[in-house]
Amino acid sequence: MRASAMTTELLQFTFSGLTVGAVYASVALGFTLIYNASHVVNLAQGEFVMLGAMSTVFLAAAGLPLPVAMILAVLISMVAGLALHRFAIAPARGADPIALIIITIGASIFLRGLAQIVFDKRFHSLPPWFGAEPIVIGGAAVLPQSLVVLAGMLVVLVGLWLFMTRTLFGRAILAASNNPMAATLVGINVPVIVAATFLISSLLGAVVGILVTPITLTSYDAGTILALKGFAAVMLGGIGNPPGAVLGGLLLGLAESFGAGLISSQYKDAIAFVILLAVLLLRPRGLLGGAALERV
């Protein structure tokens, strides 16, 4: 009896961790895409999630049918992604990585400032797709929306993988991220590729924002913490490695939920970061990071 109660408990923590982790994972994936194509760590990635969620909320409140609001919201986020590239990243091409990071921090402050004027400063939610009645699995209660998030994550991953490996454009992105010089030589327009990764990342962010808002709620400043956690997830998995980003995100989410459930809810974020530090000390390039390459 006690053992099964324990299993139920652990199962509950697992579902909690996977749901939260899926959000981190998708933010991490957005980071990775842009990083691979341009070596920019885009700290405004969380703002794409916020834009998708908040735009949907407000467009729906303005009377649009929910699906239309969602599609428009994704488009809005993509416009923001493209604009970020066109007006802030592209003009600074060749600047130090750290300068580019500061630019993306500036962009996130700008987008947050814009959101607080266009939207408002309150919390908002969206209706869950399949009701709020939890499904009981092995004694653990799971929200149907959690399954939607996990399924959505899977679709995105598979879609992205197919796009990257099966389409000409996707392969051009891969080529450009592996070796921009060689890619240019074989006729790939690298700036267009980089712009495309901003577009895909902002799309990804917006989709995730829309999927998780029924669970996590949203507000104009929801992006900051997501960028922080997403960045940690990327590094945990190993930067530049898409499966690593997903793995890092999920593990980070699990570390938090098991930390909160088994050790201390007060220090759960600390536990997650201690695990991250421990992993980095054992594997200085993250879980799935490649071999160390050092320029001389």
């Binding site: 109660a5 408990e9 509950q12 923590f13 579902f15 909690s16 749901t19 939260v20 959000v23 209660a141 998780v212 669970i215 996590t216 709620l217 929801a222 913490i225 939920s257 098991f258 909160a260 459930g261 809810s265 007060q266 759960k268 974020d269």
Partner: peptide
């Protein structure tokens, strides 16, 4: 006693402990 962070999106682990 359990706590949550102001930005936490899920508190089922804490509430599971309270429930049990």
């Amino acid at each position: 006693e359990e706590t949550y962070g102001p930005r936490d999106a899920d508190m089922t682990p804490q509430l599971t402990n309270i429930k049990n």
